[in-house]
Design a protein around this nucleic acid. Structure first.
Lengths: 167, 167
DNA sequence: AGTAAATATATACTCAGTATATATTTACTC
DNA sequence: GAGTAAATATATACTGAGTATATATTTACT
């Protein structure tokens, strides 16, 4: 997605070293998105080249500390305030469905059925997660789950619609 | 998204040359996703290297013709049948929202408002498009628009929800 | 005849992300 | 205390997707 900007967000809180950014990232996404350690360092290299972060020195344990620059803060604000576009083709299933038309109509029902199955699984999984969460848990994460469930329900509704039209 | 697989889908219909793939792609997405011409040729190079397409020869106008191989067809089927995962973080706004927590709570209301504005614009645009479409138009595209509208409505519902919670 | 737009292809380059190598420290167990 | 598995920590070569740009030809228009 934008690992680059999430690293800026983490550095906005406080200076950190590479590995701390990896663990901070994974904590933020509650372990649901394991981050390749290499990506942290390659991304930091590019951020440093573009003067969005700096490395003023090392900590007591000799780990290289990164800090966000003013330009980095500005980049972060801009990204946060920029609304996310919702092109029709950002949704990979829609795109697959379009492509399927150019191949044959045979497998469309299979596609739709497979997709619906995974959506149902996702709904069950998120519903379970939601129930497990107590008031002490991350409030934002709860909101995201709520939003994802709304999307998944819209998916089911639509898949039922098009399954009928393809009969 | 997956330009690679869409090229395979277009070649499944019939052999085509590079530029014809570009125009075929843009026709498929009704001009809503302009494809960089260079990407067609770099993608074709990789497809040829991986033996998913072949170049048996040229047409009368000396344009290099590409055809899909059996391995290419299999790759295409696999892709089409593989359901699309819906990770929480595939949605960039959710991800931004998470990052915003690590920065400050000040700008969240602005984020939500900006996002809602663009969603509303998208809804108006797609509703307009839908009305314009006659029975002669691409049926699949109409379905996609219907699905996108369901998603956008879920977005609005959720944004209203979280805007209230952040008060 | 002149020229703007469309057709057609190629390639060097950037950026995001992966795989892999490696060294050190901590925690555990026999 | 020796041995070792897991966690901590960083670096780098590489791949794949996509962009920018160069260039040549043909078609359409004035």
């Amino acid at each position: 997605m934008s690992v680059k900007h999430s690293l800026l967000a983490l550095l906005y809180e406080k200076p950190r070293h590479g590995y701390e950014l990896k663990t901070g990232f994974e904590e933020m996404v509650q372990g649901m998105w394991p981050l390749n350690a290499g990506q942290v360092y390659t991304t930091l290299d590019r951020l440093e080249r573009d003067r969005l972060v700096e490395t003023p020195g090392h900590d007591k344990k000799d780990r290289k500390l990164y800090t966000i620059t003013d330009a980095g803060k500005e980049e972060l604000w801009d990204w946060l305030e920029q609304p996310v576009g919702r092109s029709l083709f950002k949704d990979e299933f829609y795109f697959k469905f379009l492509c399927a038309n150019h191949v044959s109509y045979e497998n469309k029902q299979v596609m739709i059925r497979n997709q619906k199955e995974t959506i149902i699984k996702d709904i069950l999984h998120l519903t379970h997660l939601k129930k497990q969460m107590t008031s002490s848990h991350n409030v934002t994460m709860k909101m995201l789950i709520e939003g994802a469930l709304l999307h998944l329900e819209a998916d089911v509704k639509w898949l039922d619609m098009i399954a009928e039209m393809n009969n």
